[in-house]
Design a protein around this nucleic acid. Structure first.
Lengths: 161, 161
DNA sequence: TATTGTTATACTCTATAACTATA
DNA sequence: TATAGTTATAGAGTATAACAATA
């Protein structure tokens, strides 16, 4: 990837760009970061014979057991899909379903000991997060943090629940 | 999403993080950018009743017609998958297959007039690329570009072919 | 022989709708 | 009646293996 929709690469002989070249290049770089992030993520999951969705759910549950419905919200997908994903994780012994004492309708998905270990290993194999950042000094990281924060705007922190 | 593998959120009462908090936050921000980018991308594709993969291929072809094999390389998937994706784009009249005069084995996938229009519209609905960047001054964009370049390292420009 | 594109097959993820068991 | 989770179904993307046409 690195160029998700051809939004950057300028075909020779195409009308002049409406956006300035600097912005275009930054957009392209962001696209590259996105592509690289996903790539490394899939590779890390694959090392444990997990799909992206499975690794994502396992990562979520390793922080905190969740009702099926909440998982669907986090994944931004329909609850019916979570059934299958958790089924597969459960079949591999990485996750288990527990009753919720407070509401007998809900099932809490929670990682097993092995699941926790896999989640930890998964985190550690996500080199991209740390490695390339290692090239940046503390000041540069502060600068990058500020720029990313402004890019994301107020929308931050509105993720939960 | 915003937290792909729980690599950031620190559960209260968990052992002290091995990475410094600043780095963790930057990683989290990058995760947010990635999630946001993909979200907007899917929404933009959805507006045209296209899947992400279809929009990606259409975007690629709008730059330049490509042999099926080349599309697979760009998408980092098996050539057999491209058959179906192009089939669906072709069924909607957005793409057509042409013979390659130089090698009768290859088929060149090329956008139709309508496909070109859809690709253009698709690009324009990708607000995320420009809008949040609009908050940044020219100096900040230069700074961001430099930081992203260093993050991505030499690996840049090795995408082609 | 090697390569291009396709077909056949199987698995996963996805959404929709209908069902069950609780509340 | 409303909600949580599931099942059934269908479409799309993915990989693998085998195939026809061409090189």
């Amino acid at each position: 990837m690195g160029n998700l929709v051809g939004m950057v690469t300028q075909k020779p002989g195409t009308p002049a760009p409406r956006i300035d070249p600097l912005t275009l290049e930054v957009v392209e770089l962001i696209g590259d970061v996105v592509a690289r992030y996903y790539e490394e993520y899939e590779v890390a999951a694959g090392k444990h014979a997990l799909t992206g969705a499975q690794a994502r759910v396992l990562g979520l549950l390793s922080i905190e057991p969740l009702p099926m419905r909440r998982i669907a919200q986090k994944l931004k997908c329909e609850p019916s899909n979570v059934t299958g994903i958790v089924d597969r994780l459960e079949a591999r012994g990485l996750v288990e379903r527990r009753p919720d004492p407070a509401d007998r309708r809900v099932k809490l998905a929670a990682p097993t000991e092995e699941g926790l270990g896999t989640a930890r290993s998964l985190r550690e194999s996500l080199d991209f997060a740390r490695e390339p950042l290692a090239e940046l000094s503390r000041e540069e990281r502060l600068s990058l943090r500020g720029l990313l924060r402004r890019m994301l705007g107020e929308k931050r922190a509105a993720d939960g629940k």
